[in-house]
């Protein structure tokens, strides 16, 4: 029995969430293979080959996989994954897109957003916006699941490099065509894996960026936004934190001018420390915040920026 992890990468190295997924894959106590799909991704394969808990790396390299489409990735997962008993990946857009398609093609069910693997085939995952945890058993012959990376520790580097096997890519499916991507260039850490996140609500208005950027800069933090801030056009949807956006679990989360709607709390409640700054003393966010500060955001945030001397501790 072998376990296959689909690796999400940036063309050079694995994403942190993939290293966390490799840790999750150890629950089966079986060899773990990492599947690297892309074009000219030898560096990624090398990176995967030098991680603990990896028995072998499977590299599928072809020009049409440079910007991988769900149809092509699912075809790879079916072609290669059909010989495995477990296929898993981090619960993020590309994996969610392709794994469910592959599951249907393999005629098996799938469990999404697993935060705990109790035993092989027994998983706990949040439902109802994270308010309830459901534990299920998947009775299918091939187990397909996405895991919440932040719920698992990162795998460590390995002393010796593991074997890399190249496999041919299935033919291009030709059902859709990649046109472009618009990724916001940022020197800040990724929202999903940042140790510190500062997020703003609609109350910040036009000063959303001018208020948050200096704070994020000093803390080395990623910037997030509430749904209402996104709906008001203050921030891009891809930084929306909450049930309908991105679920995060940083060491420190600072909510500024965010009231704390149920769907927002669902996205932050696994943070280690939550700080809330709001001018409304009755804002629901204070019911879950470790430290609450009531007052005018537009004076408190600059004061906070001025008061932070060093970097965040590690």
């Amino acid at each position: 029995m072998t376990v296959l992890v689909w690796a999400e990468h940036n063309g050079i190295s694995l994403k942190k969430s993939t290293r966390q997924t490799i840790s999750a894959a150890q629950a089966w106590n079986e060899p773990v293979h990492v599947l690297v799909v892309g074009h000219q991704v030898s560096a990624v394969a090398q990176d995967a080959a030098t991680l603990a808990g990896v028995a072998e790396v499977i590299q599928v390299d072809a020009p049409h996989l440079a910007h991988v489409l769900a149809e092509d990735l699912a075809a790879c997962l079916v072609e290669i994954g059909k010989d495995y008993q477990v296929i898993l990946a981090n619960h993020a857009p590309y994996a969610r897109n392709a794994l469910a398609r592959a599951a249907a093609l393999l005629d098996v069910g799938m469990v999404s957003d697993v935060i705990h693997i109790e035993a092989p085939a027994i998983y706990t995952h949040p439902v109802f916006a994270g308010s309830i945890l459901e534990t299920v058993v998947n009775t299918d012959a091939i187990q397909i699941l996405t895991v919440r990376g932040s719920a698992f520790s990162e795998t460590a580097p390995a002393p010796v490099a593991h074997k890399i096997t190249e496999r041919n890519a299935p033919k291009p499916q030709g059902l859709s065509r990649w046109i472009r991507e618009d990724v916001h260039a940022s020197d800040r850490p990724e929202l999903t894996s940042a140790r510190v996140v500062v997020a703003g609500g609609r109350a910040l208005g036009e000063q959303f960026n001018t208020l948050l950027q200096p704070l994020a800069g000093k803390l080395g933090a990623a910037i997030g936004a509430s749904r209402s801030a996104v709906d008001a056009g203050l921030a891009a949807n891809d930084i929306q934190v909450g049930q309908t956006g991105i679920v995060i679990a940083p060491d420190l989360y600072i909510a500024i001018g965010i009231s704390g709607a149920i769907q927002h709390v669902a996205g932050i409640k696994d943070s280690k420390v939550i700080v809330a700054i709001n001018n409304d003393p009755d804002a629901p966010i204070f019911q879950i915040a470790d430290y609450g500060l009531v007052g005018d955001l537009f004076t408190l945030v600059p004061e906070l920026v001025a008061g932070i001397t060093g970097a965040t501790s590690h």
């Binding site: 027994i122 994270g130 534990t135 299918d140 204070f286 470790d290 609450g292 500060l293 009531v294």
Partner: peptide, 28 residues
């Protein structure tokens, strides 16, 4: 055909309210 069977349900651990601080220096 039911492939995925529920074993149990539990409420997610709830966070409780912490403390209110009165100033930025106290927060820091």
């Amino acid at each position: 055909r039911q492939r995925i069977q529920r074993i149990k349900l539990e409420n997610a651990p709830a966070r409780t309210a912490g403390i209110k601080v009165s100033s930025v220096p106290e927060l820091l």
